[in-house]
Amino acid sequence: MALQDKYKELTDAASAAGVTDLQVREQDNVLYIDGTAPSGAIKDQLWVIYDKIDPNFVSGDLVLNVNVDIAATVTKVKVVTQSSNLNIRKGPGTDQPIVGKAAHHEIITLVSQSSEQWWLVRPVDGEEGYSYARYLEPVTE
């Protein structure tokens, strides 16, 4: 229960912000918070709170797994790498060969979200393949 108290501000904020399927479980001295956030901004806001309670996330007593709910209508994603091109790979994994690249800030087609980490995308001109979801931001039209 102590961990639930420690991160109470976080779980309260998650329910107040409309995080769905919210689950808070404690197991072997680690608190697991799972859920689906309505937007990336809300997910980031929760991470700000996490960083406030446990600066730099050093305690190792929380696994915060809040994903962002991507509407089925989203078909375009923006490449949000720091500055470089984004690799598009044959399969979902960095061990897979690179079949293409998408430029920084380019808007490409989202074919499907094959997993939370790897999304199937199609660049403007080129073969479709898998890119790491961290570098893709849904574009709402």
Binding site: W47, G60, N65
Partner: peptide, 26 residues
Amino acid sequence: TKPNLIKLMQSVNALKPKKVDNQLTV
């Protein structure tokens, strides 16, 4: 770096680990 720490932690936390022991120097 701090911004990258948040990005990395978000990614690693989503992989359903038992625990994340973060010993990184920021």
